[in-house]
Write a protein that binds this DNA or RNA. Structure first.
Lengths: 216, 216, 216, 216
DNA sequence: GATGAATGAGCGTTCATTCAT
DNA sequence: CATGAATGAACGCTCATTCAT
């Protein structure tokens, strides 16, 4: 399976390619880390400025509000997660339909598990904001979610048409896949103990394959 | 399947049986609702007092801090969710081992889905705090989680000994079951649309049964 | 020298002779102790009620405000210190003029040192209030002080007329006497170490006698 | 006798030499005055901000708590009173031992009376805090007092060795000297009437010289 | 008389945001 | 562009005081 890129590095890299000054880059980096560590509400702009090694005013040079800074922090995630999402990544990697559910899951699960593992900072922030902030939740729900769910639904429907997937409602299948993946992500976020990603990957694959294989 | 009691009513009822004054009850009720609606940090003590129809000082008559109020709000959940948790509820409902995985899941899933549906206010708050507050997370992880997970693990191991469950690590099976249930709860929390609980229940049951049946 | 009465006992006694209920007595006693221990501002009415073993409302049954309670606490001190003050106590004890400065000081110093030693709770409160509360200070200065100073001045002038005291302005002599006595009281209030009252008494007497003897 | 510098001016001057902004200087000045006028507890941070002509938040820019502001207000007093205290000021002014008690007292009393007269704001605050706040009192007693008393004791013992001072215990002599000086300071603090410092100085000198001269 | 739950003004403190330099 | 002192609304919390029982 192809290596899913390390997004910590990728993030730093994408920052460097941006037109942001070094200080503005440092601000985004510091904000990302602190939001993930302490939550959005418990992170002060002073915290961010200090960790970034800049003055507080500098934070506001580019971002008019703290919420705008959050958006900027999350933007690379959005522009990165979406291109990688379901169909596009299937298209680009598979150049065609999966031969069977096993192959499909292997690719999707493998990739998404790696993605979650390497990006749980973002996942954590998105979760936290979605639970704590109604407006944010609505935005995620109506702007981001449909773009991710659309291709996923199409894929599931394609598999069902070919008799390759269990006969459950499409939204439920999507729910189960995402639940299983987020369950993994959540354990990653919250757990103290170090986790073996490969063990998780193998077991998730087995479980989903069992659970989603078309009943004979 | 027996009706799982409506906890909104049950909560109100348990408040009435407490030694709290009407105003103190109103405070807990208002705090519960507001914490669930807006998150802990975005709910001010003034909000709570206003919704409860009392003066701000009254909030502090019984609870020395806002955090203590949160604990008081969550207490009935803890004293209610834990007695209902795995083994005790199995004992009281089943009086013995389940005949097979299907029977086991039917009971567990049915009960927990109802429970989550009726208590998602609490679930939401616990999630939100677990993500936003490191200390709270540690407390949940080390005090509450083990008490819930212990019996669940025992049950899974029992099923495996009798060849009734898929051969995956115990912690992974538990993870998958909880993920699926929390996925449901999360959709409940976050969704705009009204959901058919019974549809969810049936599909979750099918999925988990497929996914967890012992491989031939 | 006659024993100066122990005012802790005397206070309790005077309370018992009052028309106050047992609870009201307990309130005054508790307030006195707490004001002395923690200062007026740092003592809450709740503190007082708790130490007195009564409800908070009870405190307000007789005293309309906390300040009024302070006045009530201090009242027995005022009605006790004043009758004992200079001339009256001289009259009652001496039935006449002192033979010389030595005799005069022996009586005054002995009595006042004992008095301060046994009533430093009151002295402490009065000092603290006088420094912290402008209104209180003005009241002390204009109502209490003149009543104490009047007889003292008269006595000093009497001694000067007879050539028995140093030729310094009357107010300065009073200031020095009081300074020396309050210095002792202050050390008593503030000191950690236990103090030998008798040693203080003897030395204060020597010092004042030296300092105030008429120059030959 | 040399002029003891006017500390109101000196304080303003020392503020100007500090690295504090004009607003921060105004805060310290306002806090000093208000603490002296109304006491620490009765001075609100809003009071201070208003008198200083700044926003309330500005007070907290440099001082994390009101108590820390008090410490900052008192700091120049501590760094100023201590270097001036007994031995150092003796050394610098006398370059040797005093010829007799008269000369010694003339210097000490003159200097300390002027000092108290010009710094009674500080003296007042220190007194008030010492009476109202147990922790503060302990800190003063164990950190500041010994540094002042050490040299004073040494000086007294030196005078006694040379037969120049009355044969009373060292701590009592110190107590009497301080009492007399503080009595003056207290009258200064508390009095309504304007006082003639020079009259006080002369009389205090006479009294102490009489009281402390070695008995023939 | 006694209670103690309730009150609400006001406190110390925080922090996102602004703006003169 | 960068700074960081300054802002002030808003927060959590305290406590003297009231009043229905």
């Amino acid at each position: 399976m192809a290596e899913s890129t390390n997004l910590d590095a990728l993030y730093t890299q994408s920052l460097q390619q941006s037109d942001l000054t070094a200080k503005q880059q440092a601000i985004l980096q510091a904000a990302l880390d602190l939001f993930a560590e302490q939550g959005f509400d418990h992170t002060t702009t002073k915290d961010i400025a200090q960790r970034a090694g800049v003055a507080e005013g500098t934070v506001y040079k580019r971002y008019k509000t703290k919420a705008e800074l959050l958006a900027a922090v999350l933007a690379p995630f959005a522009t990165d997660v979406l291109p990688l999402a379901a169909d596009e990544f299937i298209d680009s990697r598979l150049n065609g339909q999966p031969a069977d559910l096993h192959q499909y899951l292997e690719i999707v699960v493998g990739d998404r598990v790696d993605f979650a593992a390497k990006n749980f900072k973002y996942v954590k922030i998105v979760f936290e904001r979605a639970l704590a902030d109604n407006d944010f939740r609505q935005r995620i729900l109506h702007n981001i979610a449909p773009r991710v769910m659309g291709p996923l639904f199409k894929m599931i429907n394609g598999l069902r048409d070919r008799g390759l997937i269990v006969d459950l409602p499409t939204d439920m299948i999507a729910q189960f896949m995402l639940s299983t993946l987020f369950g993994f992500a959540f354990r990653l976020m919250v757990a103290d103990e170090p986790m073996t990603i490969e063990k998780q990957k193998t077991n998730i694959l087995k479980f989903l394959e069992n659970g989603l294989t078309a009943n004979k």
